[in-house]
């Protein structure tokens, strides 16, 4: 089942065209990695799909709802994790999960189930009773990733989910993403500068430059297209036009 269907989406900031007619699809339980340099248009795509920006033209359907015509309905099926997003520092981890669950579910039983899932996913244990301002960067990231996936959205949109994290924390985050995609059928759209991360985590991916997709497919398909051994090599050849 298609979780996301992007159709020739475009966005400009003044005279600069940030996204130029991009189309792609993500199936249920699939992980899609967007790779590109700064200014390639990755964040603009993610923000349009998170209903924070409106496309100039084109559309995207999330769980069958249009981001242009039905943004309110779309929001019930997505969860967005911005780049380097924090959480409310004066809250405890548990209160934060409780607050987010309350935004998505009115029924108390559903809220409790959501919070339990969040606690299990973040794996912070007793630290959840502490205030977030005492958390390390890695702990905060695990908490916000947990709140992103605990609502079991049709599409989880993650902007640089492991940015600034050490190897072990990055690994934890990647494993959580893979597990949630597999266990709950959540589709993931993530942007990343780390080619290795996309290679090991994503089922499919795309290389972006100047608002367009230069290549799209499974990591192996991209490697094959550029006759490369690693995604980094493929990325370099793609953006340099080799």
């Amino acid at each position: 089942m298609t979780a996301l269907d992007v159709q020739k989406i475009e966005k400009s900031y003044g005279k600069k065209q940030a996204v130029k007619g991009v189309s792609f699809q993500i199936q249920e339980g699939e992980i899609f990695g967007l790779m590109g340099m700064n200014g390639a248009g990755k964040t603009t795509i993610l923000r349009m799909l998170a209903t924070l920006l409106t496309p100039d033209s084109g559309d995207a359907l999330i769980a069958g709802h249009s981001i242009v015509k039905e943004p309110d309905k779309v929001r019930a099926h997505i969860s967005y994790l911005p780049d380097e997003a924090g959480a409310y520092r004066s809250m405890t981890g548990e209160k934060y999960l409780d607050f987010i669950a309350g935004l998505y579910f009115k029924d108390e039983a559903e809220q409790d189930e959501c919070i339990q899932l969040g606690k299990e996913i973040c794996g912070l244990g007793d630290a959840l009773s502490r205030k977030i301002n005492t958390y390390s960067r890695g702990m905060t990231r695990k908490l916000v990733l947990a709140r992103t996936v605990m609502t079991r959205p049709a599409l989880a949109i993650l902007d640089e989910p492991t940015s600034g994290l050490d190897v072990l924390n990055s690994l934890d985050i990647r494993n959580t993403i893979k597990r949630c995609a597999k266990e709950y059928g959540t589709a993931f759209l993530l942007s990343s500068h780390h080619m290795q991360e996309v290679h090991t985590t994503a089922d499919k991916g795309a290389i972006m430059k100047d608002g367009v997709f230069l290549a799209e497919g499974t990591p192996d398909e991209i490697l094959q297209k550029y006759n490369a051994e690693t995604l980094e090599q493929a990325f370099e050849r793609a953006v340099k036009g080799e």
Partner: peptide, 15 residues
């Protein structure tokens, strides 16, 4: 805005 919690809030299903 600085913590980007506003983006989280505005992309949630709350009017």
């Amino acid at each position: 805005k600085a913590d980007k919690t506003l983006e989280t809030l505005l992309s949630s299903p709350v009017p």
